[in-house]
């Protein structure tokens, strides 16, 4: 038996045990998949703290619904779908939060240009990506984030998005077109 097959069997065992109500088994799944979930959430939201909130919500949803998962071998795909949906919900919260900050600071949308000089480039890039991702329609945001996630085939991306591979590719194409405009200062 190959190492990857053994790992898959172990994961399946943990999923089955979680379905039977073993919280310890689910905790192990959390440890195994929290990095993967964070990678996706950060790509979708551009910000680690928003992503961390999303990942927590996603694991709670997964915990509550794991009994409904029929194909236990497809746990990762199922979990990533939950993460993308949780990230879409988080986008709404992030948008509102951004609006509140803007109002509180009395700043306009393009005021990032007059931000403090000591602001790090990384911080500016994070803000720019976050703003750009919030402006993308949800399917485009999902597609561009999932396509960039290592180890996912186009078919799996389409499965997570519940659409055809062609449609997923189209969303990526459209997302890149928009990001080209939104992130032109960084290209």
């Amino acid at each position: 038996m190959s190492d990857s097959q053994k790992a898959n069997d172990d994961i399946e065992r943990l999923v089955v045990a979680s379905q039977a109500g073993d919280k310890g088994a689910f905790d192990q799944l959390v440890r195994l998949y929290q990095r993967r979930a964070m990678q996706l959430a950060v790509r979708m939201l551009g910000d680690a703290s928003e992503a961390a909130e999303t990942v927590q919500n996603a694991f709670v949803r997964a915990y509550l619904n794991i009994g409904k998962l029929k194909q236990t071998k497809r746990f990762e795909i199922w979990l990533l779908r939950i993460v993308t949906n949780a990230a879409i919900s988080q986008r709404r919260i992030a948008k509102r939060r951004k609006e509140r900050i803007k109002i509180a600071n009395g700043r306009g949308e393009n005021d990032s240009a007059v931000s403090p000089v000591d602001k790090q480039i990384a911080e500016e890039l994070k803000d720019a990506i976050q703003q750009a991702m919030l402006k993308l329609p949800k399917n485009q945001a999902k597609a561009i984030s999932l396509f960039g996630l290592k180890g996912l085939s186009h078919k799996e991306v389409a499965e997570i998005m519940d659409c055809s591979v062609e449609a997923a590719r189209w969303y990526v194409f459209r997302a890149r077109q928009k990001l080209k405009v939104l992130l032109k200062e960084y290209l």
Partner: peptide
Amino acid sequence: EKEKIDLLFQQNAAEQLAGV
């Protein structure tokens, strides 16, 4: 341009995840 966009995302993700 496509590669540059992907690179920006990778760069940001790496920086964000480094602080987790």
